[in-house]
């Protein structure tokens, strides 16, 4: 904007042309931005193509049947039993437990940071929260196995809680997801215009009433999006469940029993020696595709929610 000073303008006034000047630098920059936007489309399509291609090979193998995969409850690749439910229920268990921790705490953190905390407290708490997002997932995994599990065994009894269990994996996963949810929710809360708060204060509402009954409902679409992102991260989380949730598919709804999740199964299978084109190898892609579909469905739901509850200000 340096050329916009009065002096420059006066100098240029005699020669000025009203036709739009081509700005090559800006055209290039916009082209680059356009390219980086489109790159993500290509990557996503590439991933879908690759997963779909290999998963198709799996379902074409003898002894594999899509219907049986979706309806039976035994996953035993050695005897050609590929029922996805035992992997799915444990994924569901860990995700549910994680969200039971992360949603209430995340909301609390976000409301506190956006509505209550003075700037100084906020500037300390936010980086600390983001540290939680940066701790290696493998450390979380062993935190679950050697800290949370003994704690659960102490509380519920050693006969009830197995060494590997979905409960401790889910609890620790909740801690991992907490910063993601709280930081996205806080962004949504602080985007609510100040005038809404002031109107409520003027009507005599207390601080808590303003926070919970004005600001939170107004930011509902952002909060819903945060929760969905959190869920899809929990579904895809790998290392914690691979370490702490146990190996071996197990059709159970008890949080105290070891059960392998979809991601945990992929890790265990891919860690071993796999021959190319074996049935195990191809099953990994089918499971990957399955995870992708879950994520896709969650995204569609979140889009619908955001559109339904979106409130426009200004």
């Amino acid at each position: 904007m340096a050329e916009l000073t009065v002096k420059n303008l006066e100098k240029k006034a005699s020669t000025i042309s009203l036709r739009r000047k081509p700005r090559w630098g800006e055209t290039i920059i916009q082209g680059l931005l356009f390219f980086s936007g489109f790159f993500s489309i290509f990557i996503t399509l590439g991933i879908v193509y690759e997963l779909g291609k290999e998963a198709l090979l799996f379902f074409q193998m003898p002894g594999v049947d899509l219907l049986a995969t979706l309806t039976t409850t035994e996953w035993k690749p050695h005897v050609n039993k590929f029922g996805i439910w035992p992997l799915l229920t444990s994924t569901l268990m860990t995700t549910l437990i994680a969200m039971a921790i992360a949603i209430p705490l995340g909301m609390g953190v976000a409301v506190y940071l956006s509505e209550y905390a003075i700037p100084k407290v906020r500037s300390t708490l936010k980086p600390i929260l983001e540290i939680l997002a940066g701790i290696p997932t493998i450390v979380y995994g062993y935190f679950a196995l050697t800290f949370m599990t003994p704690l659960l065994r102490e509380i519920f009894g050693k006969d009830v809680v197995q060494i590997y269990n979905t409960g401790s994996a889910g609890l620790v996963m909740g801690i991992l997801i907490l910063p993601l949810i709280s930081s996205m929710t806080e962004d949504a809360l602080s985007a609510v215009p100040r005038s809404l708060r002031e109107a409520a204060y003027a009507m005599g509402a207390t601080k808590l009433e303003v926070a919970l009954q004005i600001v939170v409902p107004a930011a509902l679409s952002g909060i819903a999006a945060a929760i969905i992102v959190g869920i899809s991260r929990a579904v895809g989380e790998t290392m914690i469940v691979a370490v702490a949730a146990g190996a071996g598919p197990n059709f159970t709804f008890s949080p105290f029993i070891g059960a392998e999740t979809i991601t945990g199964h992929i890790v265990r299978i891919s860690g071993g020696d796999l021959s190319y084109d074996s049935i195990d190898y191809n099953s990994i892609f089918a499971l990957g595709l399955f995870l992708f579909i879950i994520t896709l469905v969650l995204n569609i739901i979140s889009q619908a929610i955001v559109r339904r509850f979106r409130e426009v200000y200004e």
Binding site: R233, G236, T263
Partner: peptide, 28 residues
């Protein structure tokens, strides 16, 4: 920069990419 319809496609797509499990990405 993007026009509105492009935005409606790109944003969900990027979020979908973010939800992909890293083990799947690592394997690919």
């Amino acid at each position: 920069i993007a026009p509105r319809w492009m935005r409606e496609i790109l944003k969900p797509l990027v979020e979908l990419l973010g939800g992909l499990p890293s083990v799947v990405l690592g394997f690919l």
